[in-house]
């Protein structure tokens, strides 16, 4: 099986793999405007050139503590889902490399909750999780 190009990003203490094909760009979010009442994962809105991106925080999906919402920005992965531009906030971007994924060895009982994880790959002394961006965004939107 051929490997595919992936972005290695750190979200909380997890190393995640994003399919490079689905990543629009890697951006530095300067500031966010809050969206009161929106799903808890929504950090706010940010302008990316002439478009508005919805900045989302997926840490909670991986069992982490949500980010501090101080209106300041940070690193994010911009991606289009259903015609909407999202910026998935990440703590750090580590690498772009080709990985060959192995199926995720997830226990049956938790499979439904982790359906956004499509596979795993071996990283630098840790297991990296490859995520399906569409499902990740849908899951984050439904958190509440």
């Amino acid at each position: 099986m051929m490997g595919a190009l992936h972005l290695v990003a750190r979200v909380g203490d997890r190393g995640l793999l994003f399919d490079a094909e689905r990543v629009d760009s890697v951006v530095e979010v300067h500031s966010t405007v809050p969206a009161p009442g929106a799903a808890p994962a929504v950090v706010g809105l940010a302008a990316m050139r002439s478009r508005v991106a919805t900045v989302i925080d997926v840490r909670e999906l991986f069992g982490g503590v949500p980010m501090v919402r101080d209106g300041k920005g940070g690193r994010a992965i911009a991606t289009l889902v259903d015609g909407h531009l999202y910026a998935i906030a990440v703590d750090a971007l580590e690498d772009v490399a080709t990985f060959t994924l192995a199926p995720a060895p997830i226990a049956q009982g938790t499979a439904g909750d982790w359906d956004f994880v499509t596979g795993v790959a071996e990283g630098d002394g840790e297991t990296l999780m490859a995520v399906d961006i569409d499902r990740l965004v849908a899951r984050a939107s439904a958190l509440g």
């Binding site: 799903a39 809105l45 002439s50 478009r51 989302i56 909407h84 939107s141």
Partner: peptide
């Protein structure tokens, strides 16, 4: 006016999002 993402629309009080000339998005 552009449609806002479902995660934002679920607040139930927004009709869309806009980007004025100063570059800070507005709901």
């Amino acid at each position: 006016v552009k449609p806002a993402a479902p995660a934002v629309m679920c607040a139930g009080i927004y009709a869309g999002q806009m980007l004025p000339d100063d570059g800070a998005p507005i709901l």
